[in-house]
Amino acid sequence: MADYDISNLKFLVVDDDANMRQLIRTILGSLGVSAVEAAGGADQGYAMLGKFAADIAICDLRMDPLNGIDFARMVRTGDDSPNIYLPIIMLTGHAELTAVQQARDVGVHEFLTKPVAPAKLYKTIEGLIEKPRAFVRSKGYFGPDRRRRADPNFPGQERRRKV
């Protein structure tokens, strides 16, 4: 792992569990990050982005009434979204494969399975720093490129064009 100083990064934490918000805030603080805002719901978190220019959002998948998928969709495609490219880390539990697939399809960058620990969270942040993903806009999708590697044996028609 590279030793990055991430103290200048701003984080938005969106989780309906207050204890989890506190835990993540503490982990980020112990990694040197002081600019952390937290929201208890997807709509509240989205609204917060208007006044807090987060560099990374950490959002729980399971929330009610709007969940992490709704949050990611708002960020990527909302008419008033302040940053459609915002890196989003989605917190998930185990055995949530269907929901993870849905989250991937609305433009989530990375997944972090609970329980959260400092090294796991840092590694995820490090991945965002070191391997920024291109964004893809197609008829049915806008978000980070879901192909992480070029596949020389890709059998389909290459539809991609660079802009």
């Binding site: 490219y85 920024p132 291109a134 964004f135 893809v136 806009r137 197609s138 008829k139 490129d145 539809r159 991609r160 064009r161 660079k162 802009v163």
Partner: peptide, 9 residues
């Protein structure tokens, strides 16, 4: 409709 646009932010 079938075109993909790649953007590098």
């Amino acid at each position: 409709d079938d075109k993909l646009e790649i953007i590098n932010p």
